[in-house]
Simulated assay, not measured.
Amino acid sequence: MTNLEGRVIRRRRALDPPAGVPDDLQLLATLAERLGVGGFSGDPRTVFEELRRASAGGAADYAGISYARIDAEDGVFWPCPAAEDGAPDHPGTPRLFTERFATPDGRARFLRVEHVDAHEPTDAEYPYVLTTGRVLAQYQSGTQTRRTRSLQLIAPTPRAELHPDLARRLGIAQDDVVELATRRGRARFHAAVTDAIRPDVVFAPFHWGGGSSANALTDPALDPTSRMPAFKVCAVAVTRVGGPEERIAPPAPATQPQPRAAAPAVPARPRPPARSRRSPSMKSTPRFLQGVYPITGEGLTKPGPVDAALRYTVPSGCSAQALYFRGGNSTGELVYVLLLRDGEPVRWFPIGARGDTHVPLRVVEDLPGGSVVELHAAAPEGVTGELVLDLGLVEV
């Protein structure tokens, strides 16, 4: 793959897939074969060699990049033409446009852009702004991630995010069913009340279909230059239609919402007790590696175990997932905590001097039974103090 800085690197398989599950290249090669197209390889190295030949002489020239060079040089920057006979390898191009830009006279072009207001403003009937996007645990469509038990626990139902002030004004509590209506359609979601969003904005994920389809709401207006649809801004109305235990029923079949009278002020209802949203057949158990532990540094290059209590083995027949890490540092120096899986480092968390950190994890990967998770730590040599550690996991 090529990262944002133009460095061509290799991504290696972390785990072998289950038996009978092909990777994407193999699927494409199989599909091509069934469609009668020969010569389509499912081998990554073969495909990369074809990319080298196809890109030779182009703006993004990969011809001089090989697996061996990527491994030896920790990645190679494109463009990197193939070396002429007897000449040394091209070094790659870590920085583009050091001498000239890709314009006829080699000079940069600056274009003035005027601000343009949203295509669809709010009004009395649709007084709030709707924006759409991803939920981390469901990636794009959820067609794969909703088959993973731990991710299903994180995002079991489509949820629209509302600010607490807006929720109180509309009489909406956590997990209530709300209907979002725009000039194009309606969709229903469970409410997620959070102060991470503005009081005049509602967020809806686009991973669900049917009665919770965000695309039934969005504005089809196109940007005049990029031709991108206005998925991020449109006017919306919000109504509570059910309690937290009710299923999300599809909205009325009418394609156009009918004009509505202004809703009377509804007194804020007491917040109901937290309820489990998981399926009755799915049992989960929280697990925590946490406590306050003394630390004596042996050098930042020498992380080591802190305490036997910071080690967890996933029981056989279960799976688990790390959800968050919190850490505090009483020393006057930077320290870091290392998260290991089966003895291999997978994440490190720097904690500043007399500081703390909180990192949500929610990695897509499940930890199968038998996996060992542990926390190690490192500090500058001779530094002493205490660490406050808290790794939260869910076991399914």
Rank of each mutant, 00 (worst) to 15 (best):
F97T: 09
L334T: 12
P18Q: 00
H119M: 05
L170C: 03
A254K: 07
R45V: 14
R7E: 12
A196M: 10
E120A: 13
F325E: 10
A83Y: 05
D390V: 07
Q26R: 15
A252K: 08
G86P: 09
T148H: 03
R53G: 13
A82P: 06
L387Y: 05
R188T: 09
A181V: 07
G38I: 13
A102N: 11
R112E: 09
V372Q: 09
S55H: 04
P270E: 15
A221W: 04
D23N: 13
T98H: 11
Y139C: 10
V193K: 12
V383H: 04
P251Y: 01
L96G: 15
H115Y: 08
I172R: 00
G20T: 13
A322I: 13
Q138L: 13
L334G: 02
L136S: 10
D117Q: 03
Q258A: 12
A221E: 08
T131I: 12
L170M: 11
S141Y: 05
A124P: 03
E246Y: 08
T122G: 07
D61P: 01
R10K: 14
E374D: 14
A191G: 09
D61M: 04
S284H: 08
Q258N: 05
A181Y: 04
E245I: 11
W78K: 02
Y293H: 09
G369N: 07
T239K: 05
D307P: 03
G355S: 13
L111W: 15
K283T: 15
Q174W: 01
T313C: 04
E333G: 04
G142E: 12
E245H: 15
A87G: 02
S212F: 03
A56K: 10
G86H: 10
A214K: 02
A60T: 13
P205K: 06
